[in-house]
Simulated scan of single mutants.
Amino acid sequence: MKVLAIDDQQLVLLPLQKRLVELGYEVKTETNSSKALELYDCFNPDLVIVDINMPGISGLDVVKYIRETKKSLMPIMVLSGNIQDDIITEGFELGINDYMKKPLSLNEICARVKRLIGAPSMEETIQESNVMIQQRCVGVVIPCYNEEERLLSKEFTDYIDKNTGYHLCFVNDGSKDNTLNVLQELQKGREDFITVYDCEKNGGKAEAVRLGMLHMTKKEDLDYLGFLDADLSTDLADFDDLVKTIESSEFKIVSGSRIARMGANITKKSARKIISLTINFIIRKILSMDFKDTQCGAKIFHKDVIGIAFDKKFVTQWLFDVEIFKRMTLHFGLKSAKAMLCEQPLKRWIHADGSKLSIKDSVKIIGQLGQIAWLYRGEKNKNLVPNSTALTVA
């Protein structure tokens, strides 16, 4: 039994193909809908699974080709995040047999496939899958410097194995230990879901994140891009909550916030807490925004603002988050920028031992805040291009 799956997002097709093959189906996939029509003609599938929202030829156009041009009654299933009634109705009027709304589990998809075309005869019992097919695809940049001992490799791999739609990009920022080898080992067998970007020289966290974000913009199937600390002081489940917020809103940036409150597990060293309050007060004055926590290492961005936020090198190494928000303000204007930014409290944030930003460094950061205020001042610097390389905290 042959299945043709068509979706412009490779991160959706890969786990679907793997699962159907495990169940005994012959499966071909295609991200380009024009090529998919050619593949349909030569593959002669027993079932087509197609997404609706694709560039060029839409999923409904594929259905029309099969039903009207080819005059085929072969079963067609739609797997889409589109929940518009008129689109769903049009699909059934064109002759689709099933409409599945993302997100949903692979188990449900496979059960629907079996209902339409039956199950290949297999003697061995296949264990049920706990994988979810997501509506959106997200790239996550994780800067790494000397993380050989701290990198929680299993937590990363377990998460992407269970949650489709995530592609992790680990940026090795010129580590002096064995971090690069650890990352390359982590990537093995998961090359479609994990990228290792190697910087030969240490350029600091700001530059590592910037290069990683620009590298990931080249992946066309990603809807959103974000970054996360390697020590998982903010865990991936909390990060996914940020993604859910941005995909269901008009926000362009959703930033995690480490606000201590009832029902949340937010722990900081007391000295860091005092320094943070001082720094945050200065930042609010610089940005003219009531941000509670700009420096949380968990943020998610709409892909269309990545150029504004990351094209130019940052002036500072640790305060690039402030520079991002300042760049948004200078590009869109303060009122519009405020409407595009969302600060979302985290459920969990734990200060990790071995954090490279010391209390002494935090005090020195105040001087760098003055530098940001000066360099990004006023509307006359709207097209400011920082030429200096990222400063290091001495």
Results as ranks from 00 to 15, higher is better:
212 G>L: 09
173 D>T: 03
165 G>P: 04
394 A>E: 12
389 T>N: 15
348 R>F: 13
98 D>A: 03
70 K>I: 10
345 P>G: 05
299 K>D: 04
126 I>P: 09
69 T>W: 05
220 E>D: 10
319 L>V: 05
303 K>L: 03
280 N>M: 10
88 I>M: 06
145 Y>I: 05
315 V>R: 03
218 K>C: 04
152 L>I: 14
188 K>C: 03
295 Q>R: 09
290 D>C: 12
51 D>V: 05
288 S>K: 14
200 E>R: 11
63 V>K: 07
137 C>I: 04
267 T>Y: 11
336 S>H: 07
278 T>M: 12
192 D>Q: 02
301 F>R: 00
392 T>F: 12
113 V>G: 04
294 T>G: 04
355 S>K: 08
99 Y>K: 08
245 T>V: 12
312 K>I: 02
14 L>P: 00
26 E>F: 02
295 Q>P: 00
332 F>G: 07
29 T>R: 07
60 L>D: 03
34 S>K: 14
353 D>A: 15
241 D>W: 06
171 V>Q: 04
102 K>F: 01
321 D>A: 05
171 V>H: 03
143 P>W: 13
303 K>Y: 08
324 I>L: 13
187 Q>P: 03
334 L>T: 09
386 P>A: 06
370 G>L: 14
15 P>D: 07
257 S>D: 02
276 S>G: 06
383 N>E: 10
52 I>L: 07
375 L>E: 10
20 L>K: 00
247 E>I: 01
361 D>E: 10
326 K>Q: 15
169 C>Y: 01
203 G>F: 13
348 R>C: 13
117 I>Q: 07
263 G>K: 09
149 E>V: 09
216 M>L: 13
227 F>Y: 15
155 E>G: 09
357 L>F: 15
29 T>E: 04
379 E>G: 14
384 L>W: 04
233 S>C: 14
322 V>T: 12
184 Q>I: 10
